[in-house]
Write a protein that binds this DNA or RNA. Structure first.
Lengths: 265, 265
DNA sequence: CAGTAGCATAATATCGAAATTTCTGATCCG
DNA sequence: CGGATCAGAAATTTCGATATTATGCTACTG
């Protein structure tokens, strides 16, 4: 990476999206400690956080600094609904629009994904799989030949990453055959069959949130996090670029407040 | 506004989106002059530009600073296509989901828009109309009750603003009955009729780009702008949040280079 | 004892300058 | 005459420090 800000931005982003990440939703991100940890000036940390805030991965509150975006059942439901719609759009367009080179790229990306183990030999989660997974889905939708649509899909998928760690940790969904889902997606792509492709992709996207929401509701984990309720704060600056919304109740960490939660899906 | 950065950010954003704006696409945005003009430090201008870059309104190139996003026929076509799809999605959901309060808000916003003149008495463009127009469309789609979807729509509409000034200036589309289009949108909303609503909205969105592209092609204004072709630059950092794409050819300013342009729509 | 004003501490926001990189233009060599 | 080289200038990036604002604790008052 060329500039120092880019490096800090990339590292912060990776840690934010990392399954084994150390950042809890709602956690404050103080500038000084981060600057020391990255051995950089306050300015570069600030710029990195500003960019992440504009993406919606962290929220910026004037005069209060930055904190990790909160998660909530209602936001997860909304996010999932939008992801399904937008990715379906892109997939339909890709199948209609893609050429043989696109088919080849999809097959190649699937092969890589298929041969990458989900877990390391040591037992830990394999970050390489996450990368291959990301690459497969990106390739699949790249055929839509619409940079803007691709950008939106990527942004939404990144937001979804914030929830994935709980899916893996809490909802042990052993019955799932992820490899099979990916195989079917690949097959639908090469046979150029839009409707089954969209159906498979929809189920692929919806499964994790559905399981997670079911777990959360069954265990009553949809209350507010155990932090003091916000006193009169200036409004967090809106991420006009991509993400509105204001999830206030935490998904995890059963507190004693009974937060209002929208019905899932 | 509370912090200085917010003020500069807001003002810069307004000028970038302003019809009578002084910023040309591709124009470099040097920090020192801007800092002097806003009577602020480099830091605040830098942060404002960083946020705008993440939104895709300006592009940031490492070690080279910021510049106004370029426009191109192919980007306009892509943007329009995506806008139609995403706004249609939101509108369908709003009509299905909205309640009486939503209908009332739509009627109210339409009334305000209807009674706001497009041009000032003096003849200049009325910024108040732009605001009312924006409010009407936002209200119309707010019924979808999906913060993420709303955010995406807003972001796309802002990007479209970058093109609107040429539509007004170049393609004098006198046959257009904008007020009628808005009236029909309002009527479809209160009668809860999805299909005609989507049809009207689609035409409403597509009209300006279509006219503008026709004008550009008829006048051969789709060549590269009269600036030196980019020498080997480090890649502009991708706006992962919202907007990909890399429009290189300018829409206006007939140069002598014959840029490759994708077919419109 | 509850509630509030005031003070000390900590964190953010802003600034101005130093350090690094890129651009410009003139000079020099083949 | 064309192309490479190399200072000087300009712009960006990064830094450390200062100013401003929020936070938490203590002491005081009703």
């Amino acid at each position: 990476m060329s500039t120092r800000t880019e490096a800090v931005y990339g590292e912060l982003r990776r840690e934010l999206l990392d399954l084994s990440g150390q950042f809890e939703p709602g956690q404050r991100l103080k500038l000084l400690p981060l600057a020391e940890r990255f051995d950089a000036s306050l300015s570069v940390v600030r710029e990195a956080l500003t960019r992440l805030a504009e993406q919606g991965l962290v929220v910026a509150t004037p005069q209060h600094g930055f904190s990790v975006r909160e998660v909530s059942v209602s936001d997860l439901a909304d996010l999932t609904r939008v992801r399904v719609q937008v990715e379906s759009l892109a997939l339909r367009q890709a199948i209609q629009n893609g050429d043989v080179a696109w088919e080849a790229a999809v097959v190649a990306a699937h092969h890589t994904l298929d041969r990458t183990p989900v877990e390391h030999a040591t037992g830990g989660f394999n970050e390489g799989w996450a990368e291959a997974h990301r690459a497969f889905h990106q390739t699949l939708l790249a055929g839509c030949d619409s940079p803007r649509l691709e950008g939106m899909v990527t942004s939404l998928r990144d937001s979804a990453e914030l929830y994935r760690r709980w899916y893996w940790a809490l909802a042990d969904d052993h019955a799932r055959d992820i490899a099979g889902e990916h195989r079917r997606l690949r097959d639908c792509a090469v046979t150029r069959d839009p409707e089954p492709a969209v159906a498979v992709l929809t189920e692929h996207i919806e499964r994790a949130p559905r399981e997670l929401i079911a777990y959360a509701q069954h265990h009553g984990l949809d209350a507010a996090p155990p932090r003091k309720p916000a006193t009169s704060l200036p409004p967090a600056r809106s991420a006009a670029a991509s993400i509105g919304g204001s999830p206030v109740s935490g998904l995890i960490d059963g507190g004693d407040e009974h937060g209002q939660v929208h019905p899932p899906l």
